[in-house]
Nucleic acid binder design. Structure first.
Length: 282
DNA sequence: CATTTCACCTGGTGGC
DNA sequence: TGCCACCAGGTGAAAT
């Protein structure tokens, strides 16, 4: 499932491949679920704009777009560009292909680019979302939660210290931290030695700081390895990541803990499959 | 308001 | 071999 490291990897890959190219053709599929902004509106607004840059905020991929429809920027209208925002949901892929590449099932969007490549959005489960924001009308988009890689000690502790819910549930809440999903919640709790069901308010300052550092270390290590390919995640070139090989608990139910050889347990927390070592985590 | 539950989806899995 | 019930999980709405 695409979380912060996977989304970062895809955003970097797309940026490298399409930066500076213009959208010269737009095709959308007939399913309506992926379109947070109506497809017709997106098609009209995307066509002719240049992709200036692509980056990540939380689990969102943000494509920064230039002026509309080949027209020069009109300063007086206040129109300064737009953002095409892609959320991969569970099974979404944002791929840079050639126009001749075989059309795989569940392709919901194809943007033809001036450089001769195509940007494709593919999502079998349709939990992903496509959104267009005009910067004249809307504020520049950023995810509501804090960036896990940028947050400091006090701010991190402040997010959790008065809450009653399990720490794992809080880590998954995107309005607190943006970008942490099931894999990196479990892996960072293991690295910090904290059980997923521990209530936030019961965690000490020291434990919260261990968790912050563990989370940042795990996210950075995952980005270095191109993310975790557990179901069908691939990057913008269709290449799998390698961080799943480094997982200590996620989807290792019954297997020996890498640190102490105690079998990894699986429980349900916040309705999500949750993996931990009963020996290493307290 | 804080927290929990559920619906949205389809491909993969395991049981018979 | 084939069929089918069941499950995974990010998010947002609804319920508690």
């Amino acid at each position: 499932m695409p979380e912060l490291p996977e989304v970062e990897t895809v955003a970097r890959g797309v940026h490298r491949r399409v930066r500076g190219q213009r959208i010269v053709q737009v095709w959308f599929g007939s399913h309506k679920q992926p379109f947070k902004t109506p497809a017709a509106c997106q098609a009209k607004e995307l066509d002719g704009r240049a992709i200036l840059a692509v980056h990540r905020t939380g689990k969102h991929i943000v494509c920064e777009l230039g002026a509309p429809h080949f027209e020069p920027l009109d300063e007086s209208s206040g129109e300064v560009g737009a953002q095409w925002i892609v959320h991969l949901g569970m099974t979404g892929r944002l791929l840079v292909t050639t126009p001749a590449a075989p059309l795989v099932p569940h392709t919901h969007a194809r943007l033809g680019l001036s450089g001769g490549k195509e940007l494709r959005f593919v999502d079998p489960r349709r939990f992903g979302r496509l959104e267009l924001r005009l910067l004249k009308r809307d504020a520049s988009f950023s995810a509501p939660g804090k960036e896990p890689l940028a947050i400091g000690t006090e701010e991190f502790a402040g997010l959790f210290h008065r809450r009653r819910l399990p720490i794992k549930a809080a880590l998954l809440n995107q309005t607190l931290l943006a970008g942490v999903g099931n894999i990196y919640a479990d892996e960072s709790l293991f690295q910090a030695g904290i059980r997923p069901r521990r209530r936030c308010e019961r965690l000490s300052k020291a434990e919260l700081e261990r968790l912050r550092l563990a989370l940042q270390q795990v996210l950075l290590a995952a980005i270095r390895l191109g993310g975790s390919s557990v179901s069908d995640y691939v990057d913008a070139d269709g290449v799998r990541g390698f961080f799943q090989l480094e997982h200590c608990v996620y989807q290792r139910t019954g297997l020996p803990c890498r640190r102490c050889e105690t079998p990894i347990r699986r429980i349900l927390v916040a309705g999500r499959g949750t993996h931990y070592c009963p020996q290493c985590q307290h």
